[in-house]
Design a protein around this nucleic acid. Structure first.
Length: 493
RNA sequence: GUCCCCAUCGUCUAGUCUGGUCCAGGACACAGGCCUUUCACGCCUGCGACAGGGGUUCAAAUCCCCUUGGGGACGCCA
């Protein structure tokens, strides 16, 4: 029987969840779902200096919002430090590692030297060759030391078959005796991470390609510890439009998951967008339901080349990657209304214009209205900005609409009240009846129906664009329409 | 500087392993058109790429080599 798949997402809590991390989490999650395996969330918080509680919460919130679920309570790497230290001790005893008494200053100097001479930057092995006597002397005088892994000498190489990149080979001579324990006794990431993966029984390490260079070192640790090695799948990185790796420091919130949440993205739409950044199916399918995506997912579909997150700073039309917006718009417009309702509600609550009747008495009307106006929207936030006139009497009038559809036609000063009277007089406020009123009036006054229609749209919704006017009138309702038309003459004052 | 990785439309990509069906397909963006009371949606059309050079082969986006370009790693960070 095949071993159960166990994967992990192991972020270091030094900031918010950004799209690179989210993408890694999503691929791991998808792989776990696809294989019926488990996903572990492991917070790598051993850098006490930079790890914060706030950041942990931010990452958890971000993952939850995206819908990425994990299978056990989050693990905290800091709880297992003793295990890492013990592992280092074993490595020391088995001769796979050694104490190095070189000081930081000496090492910095050697590194600088190597850089100057344009040679390889690599530890020279000074302490590897210390005689037992010399070691004893140094130990006796309580000199601080770090622990380095002893990389095999000779012509060999570490090699492994990456699930994405294929055969990767690194010669021993190109790997330095890397540090696994600091002089203060604390283990380093390269060790902790491997020890944790061994303990947690991780079967597949799915991580960014920036971890590729670490893999041979970790393989050496696995071997020295006598552990089975997991499979590795390195994912291509996400770069910015200048082809630099995206990072919190350089890009700010445009790469933060929470930013997209605040800007009115539907979580699944964002997942759909992110998953397409560096992964595809043979058919190049673009839109996936959750079930479809899990079904279609495969490590083989991960692209080897890095991809560009196409944010164009200062683009007046797109505040982020146009494709992300288009996918979001697609979901916003095509999902069953009931599915977007909760997100719309959240926006209303945030804006302080939520009315409990929207899910009581007015529920049907509420859903129909969302359905009516969403076709022109890209974000859930649009419902409270562009769509406020449908749900509240306090709505702004777009200056362009005012100018083009109202003020341009002096006659409306006279026509609006007439139209208001006639609409008010209607027994049946229906599409048919309202249309008759408008068209008859246009004939009577010998004006184009469009003038009345576009003027009414601007007066009733504050906007120059929107659904067909008779739908709008019905959605807004007879009383409000009449009131707004009458009030519109004040625009001419 | 050393090592590792990568290279198809502006962007995301299919096709590369298993050469011919590819004068390279899809999506987004862009341009034009249809529809129309507005704006969208939708539909149609267009623009647009195999980084360059050598091989191998009857045949190369696909295989090999070189060049160029890009990315990543080289911490007592994770």
């Amino acid at each position: 029987m095949e071993k159960e798949v166990i994967v992990r997402f192991a972020p270091s809590p030094t900031g918010y969840l950004h799209i690179g991390g989210a993408r890694t989490a999503i691929y791991n999650w998808l792989f776990a779902k696809k294989t019926g395996g488990r996903l572990i969330l492991r917070i790598e918080d051993t850098d006490a200096e930079r790890s914060t509680e706030e950041s942990i919460q931010g990452i958890v919130d971000g993952l939850k919002w995206l819908g990425v679920t994990w299978d056990e309570d989050p693990y905290f790497q800091s709880k297992f430090i003793q295990e890492h230290i013990d592992a280092a001790q074993r490595l020391l005893e088995s001769g796979h590692a050694y104490k190095c008494f070189c000081t930081k200053e000496e090492l910095d100097q050697k590194r600088e030297q190597a850089r100057k001479e344009k040679g390889a930057i690599k530890y020279d092995g000074t302490c590897r060759n210390l005689t037992p006597e010399k070691i004893a002397v140094k130990e006796k005088s309580n000199l601080p030391y770090i622990i380095r892994l002893k990389v095999p000498n000779g012509e060999g190489a570490v090699s492994f078959r990456d699930e994405v990149y294929g055969l990767i080979e690194k010669k021993y001579k190109d790997i330095e005796d890397f540090v696994i324990v600091r002089s203060n006794g604390q283990p380093l990431y390269v060790l902790s991470n491997a020890v944790d993966d061994i303990r947690d029984g991780i079967t597949h390490v799915i991580r960014g390609q920036d971890g590729l260079a670490n893999t041979p070192k970790q393989l050496l640790i696995y071997n020295a510890l006598g552990a089975d090695v997991p499979k590795f799948a390195h994912m291509s990185l996400t770069l910015d439009s200048k082809k630099a790796k995206i990072s919190k420091r350089r890009h700010g919130e445009i790469v933060a998951v929470h930013f997209y949440r605040e800007r009115g993205f539907l979580p699944w739409a964002f997942v759909n967008f992110l998953v397409l950044l560096g992964w595809s199916t043979p058919e190049s399918q673009q839109i996936f339901s959750k079930e479809e995506l899990i079904d279609a997912f495969s490590l083989k579909g991960i692209n080897k080349a890095n991809s560009v997150f196409d944010v164009r700073k200062d683009d007046p039309k797109f505040f982020t990657d146009p494709k992300a917006i288009s996918i979001n718009a697609h979901y916003l417009r095509n999902l069953p209304v009931e599915e977007i309702e909760p997100y719309v509600k959240a926006e209303f609550e945030k804006a302080g214009i939520w009315d409990p009747e929207f899910e009581g008495e007015k529920h049907n009307w509420f859903l129909n209205t969302i359905d009516l106006i969403r076709n022109r929207f890209n974000f859930t936030t649009d419902f409270v900005t562009l769509g406020s006139a449908y749900f509240s009497d306090d709505f702004p009038i777009d200056p362009k609409a005012l100018k083009k559809n109202i003020l341009k036609h002096e006659g409306l000063k006279e026509w609006f009240p007439v139209l208001a009277d006639r609409l008010e007089a209607l027994q049946d406020f229906t599409m048919e009846e309202t249309e008759n009123v408008v068209r008859d009036m246009a004939d009577e006054y010998e004006i184009k129906a469009g003038i009345l229609i576009n003027g009414a749209r601007a007066a009733v919704t504050g906007q120059a664009v929107g659904p067909g006017i008779f739908d709008v009138l019905l959605a807004v309702g007879q009383d409000r329409v009449v009131e707004r038309l009458r009030k519109a003459v004040t625009f001419f004052e």
